[in-house]
Every structure is written in C-alpha cells, then in structure tokens.
Amino acid sequence: MSDPILSGHQLTRWFPGRTHPALDGVDVTVRQGISLGIVGESGAGKSTLLRQLLGVDRPTSGEIRFTGQPLDRIRHRAFRRQVQVVFQDPRSSLNPRMSVASIVAEPLRSLHIGTDRAARAERVAEVLTAVGLRPEDGRRYPHEFSGGQRQRIAIARALAPAPRILLADEPVSALDVSVRLQIIDLLKDLVDRLGLTLVLVSHDLAIVSQLCQEVLVMRHGRVVERGPTVDVLTNPADEYTRALLAAIPQLPLDLEEEP
C-alpha cells in the first residue's frame, strides 16, 4: 500500500454556540495515487473535514499531518504547492474583476513559482489547454463564461502549481446536469494523466463511484463506513450507507441495458 501523504488524526471541531461538534474524532488518510471520496448529507461534517485537510481551519483537537509531519512544522508554501482546491460554485470562487489569466496565475505569483512573467504566462496557457480552454481565453473575464467553463478555470488555477493532491468540494453540484459529466470526465482525465490524488467531497455517491477508489461515508460528524468504493457500494455494511444508496433517484432499470 502506498504512503500516506495527507492525514487527519482524531479530528474534532467545535463551532462556538453549537451543541454538537461538526467533526467528532475523525481519522482520515489520503494515500498517494488513491483518490478518496468523502460522502454524506448536509451537516455531516464533510466540508469541515475538507477545510481541515486544506489547512484553512484548525481542529479543536487532533492533528493534520502532511508527508508524516504535523502541519505547523511544514513550510507554508511547500504545503500550498502540493495541496490545491476546487470549490463548489465557480461564480463565487473566481474574482469577477480579474482576468482569467491573472486568476490562474495567482498561485504562481503568490507561491513564487516560475522565474519570470513569461514563464508564468506559459504555464497559464498550458493549464488552460489542459482543462479544455484556449490560451486566448486568458484575456477574458469570468462573467463571459458559462458555469461549466468557469469551473474549468477554477480547476486550471488549482492545477497551476502542479499539486500532488487536488481537493474538490462538491465540484459539480452547482452546474447544470448536462455539464456535470464533462467536468467529471475532465477530473478523471486529469487524475489519470497528471497522477493527481483527488479528495472529493460530495453528497452524490454516483459521482464518487466514478472518481474515487476509496470512500468515506460521514454522518453527524463521524465516519460511519469506509473502504474501497466498490465494496462500500455493492455491499454496504452500515445501515445509513444502504439508505443513502437506496435514495438515489434512478431511471427505469431496463433502460440502462440499451446501448
């Protein structure tokens, strides 16, 4: 089994004024090359967990480790280069007053990647192409793009510093149905091509099953089930996981057999 890169140990997070912790003793391990899905319904604590793994929120107790070291002993820039994120809604995750090129170049500038402006511009063109946009699109502004294209821009920004881990928080649920598959396909392709490790937070088991080898099912701040995605989906051990699976709306079954 490959090495853990990013892990959380006994993570507990209390928010002021709440009677229950948002996270309650959660252990999580992200291994190189094994994409992890974090599944649960609203209030399960999955986004809180993602923010812990991203290092933008601190646990009340417990510890995040990156390549075996506690997070506060890791150099900030080194961590940020390796761990990037895509948020749910590209309408709010892209600054409307910045051009696409400067949005995508932001991690390069802030993390001092690339020797000069020209090198950074080259990298921006490269990642824009990688997500299926054109390098010329860099001159335009977010509002000129559709929802799916904006999510591609957000993905390009995350890819710019060539991270090892890509965290994604419900990356398709703000998008129209017909666009979702394209973004899922893009993520799958990027994981394969770039050797990224994906940590996907989603309420949608179907999407997780498509993108992640391992899955973690959460409820009320705790992990109720974890394991290889195939096992969890075909043979769920936990009652809640079973209910979750049964609740997914389905098309009439025989339809799927048709080509």
Partner: peptide, 23 residues
C-alpha cells in the same frame, strides 16, 4: 437524447453491481 444519455450514465455509475467498470 443528451439528457437521457447523461442521466442514464449517472444512474449507471451508482450501480457497480450491474456494471463493474472500476479501476
């Protein structure tokens, strides 16, 4: 046609027992 195709595909994703196409 596209709507049906993508919905069918997403539905299929959640049914690994029927189509075990996993890496």
């Amino acid at each position: 046609r596209q709507l049906v195709a993508s919905a069918a595909q997403v539905t299929r994703l959640a049914r690994p027992s029927v189509h075990g196409e996993y890496r």
